[in-house]
Amino acid sequence: MSYNIHQQVFVLSNASNLLSACKGTQADLQGKMDAALQPTITNAKIGDWSVVWGPKVWKFNPGNANSGPDRVWYIARNPSANFGDGTYDTYVLAVAGTADSSFENIVIDAYVDKVVDFYGWVQAGITTTPEQATTVDQAKPYIAYGTATGISTLLTVASPAGQTIIEFLATIPATSRLVFTGHSLGGALSPSVALALLKAGLLKNATGNVFAYPTAGPSPGNGSFSALFAQNFPLISGGPAAYQMWNGNLTNTYDIVPHAWGIDSLNAIPTLYGKLPFIPGLAVRAIVNSAIDKAKSSGLGYVSLQGQTFSTTAPPTPKTLKAFLQTALQEHISAYGSLLGTPSIPSLCKPTSSTEQARGLPILGGIYQAHLEAKEMERLEKEGE
């Protein structure tokens, strides 16, 4: 079976998440990724793709063996990828989403209330450490501080071979095509890093040869940032299916993660799967209200990046927090693979539970914690009987 370019890029994106359920030191996880990435891509039979930079596994605490990777990214190349309008020498930068046991990514999620002046950061030098803005002018583009710290890691941490992506991208032909992709957190970081590199003058490829293909990403910044992205990466619809586009965030209408961090979209979450029973409904509403407070305290109005949506069959209304999480994870992960019809890329490690993947995700992380607390209360009540 042959896969079109969007399907190929999506599989490459998924391959960045091979370690999503794994724990280990940075060195252990790097070894796992080094051994598995190229064979995984080859076995998917999506075309002549080879890993040319990385993969890089990065952890804020590299010696901690009891947590997952905080960032995983790599670049693959196909010397003759078919885009429909011709074949091109193509490079794809794939950025992983949140690993189940990543502490640093939970911190990134928590840094929605702090923001960074995007232009100020670019002008100071995009490889400098991002600094929190003390005032906010809504007419200027801002991104969440968590997003900025994620971008900073991607730009400044070198591959095991000692080369940053900035240094590598400077070596590729200007006529080559370049695609930035990622799912979930990777769906916020990949278009943002593309725009950061472009505005910093670090991409020598012609603008028409640089594309973003984020999926299921939360909004990285305010309306001015979203407008700046749209101006520099115009939305291109490339076919009849919703996923056949460039420079837009592909989102499932039943996926909770892309509802972060706009106020109206956050408010839609408690009834997204119908009217919840009283106790789960209270818990979800409380967590959503906390997220809204966090988004408001940033001083920004978060606005989603442009994109296209699709809808699965409406899921049945969950009766428990566990069922809510299972439904949400299905809509956030499996639904996209089903839409694109691509081969699945399972994690190298087995998740400890059917809900653990929710742990570090926006909104769902809070619901996951509430679910664990409810389970613990049930256990204590049974012991007390």
Rank of each mutant, 00 (worst) to 15 (best):
S298H: 15
G299K: 14
G299P: 14
G299A: 14
L300V: 02
L300Y: 06
G301L: 06
G301Q: 14
Y302I: 14
Y302M: 07
Y302G: 14
Y302F: 15
V303P: 03
V303D: 04
S304L: 13
S304E: 08
S304M: 11
S304P: 15
L305Y: 04
L305A: 09
Q306M: 10
Q306F: 07
Q306V: 08
Q306R: 07
G307L: 11
G307T: 07
G307C: 10
G307A: 12
G307Y: 07
G307I: 08
Q308M: 12
Q308T: 13
Q308A: 09
T309D: 11
T309C: 05
T309I: 05
T309E: 12
T309G: 06
F310E: 01
F310W: 02
S311H: 01
T312P: 00
T312V: 00
T313G: 04
A314T: 01
A314Q: 02
P315M: 06
P315T: 08
P315E: 06
P315L: 02
P316N: 10
P316V: 06
T317R: 03
T317I: 07
T317D: 05
T317W: 09
P318A: 12
K319N: 12
K319W: 00
T320D: 10
T320N: 10
T320C: 07
T320A: 05
T320M: 11
L321R: 08
L321A: 07
L321P: 05
L321I: 10
K322I: 03
A323R: 09
A323E: 15
A323F: 06
A323L: 14
F324N: 09
F324I: 12
F324P: 02
F324G: 08
L325G: 03
Q326W: 09
Q326M: 14
Q326E: 15
Q326L: 07
T327V: 07
T327K: 00
T327N: 10
T327I: 03
T327M: 03
T327F: 01
A328W: 08
L329R: 09
L329E: 13
L329S: 11
Q330R: 11
Q330E: 00
Q330M: 01
E331R: 06
H332P: 03
H332E: 02
H332S: 14
I333P: 04
S334Y: 11
S334P: 00
S334V: 11
A335D: 08
A335H: 06
A335W: 04
A335R: 07
A335M: 05
Y336V: 03
Y336T: 04
Y336K: 02
Y336Q: 03
Y336D: 02
Y336F: 06
Y336S: 01
L339E: 10
L339S: 04
L339P: 03
L339T: 00
L340I: 12
L340Y: 09
L340H: 13
L340Q: 08
G341Q: 14
T342S: 05
T342D: 08
T342K: 04
T342Y: 04
P343L: 10
P343V: 13
P343Y: 15
P343A: 13
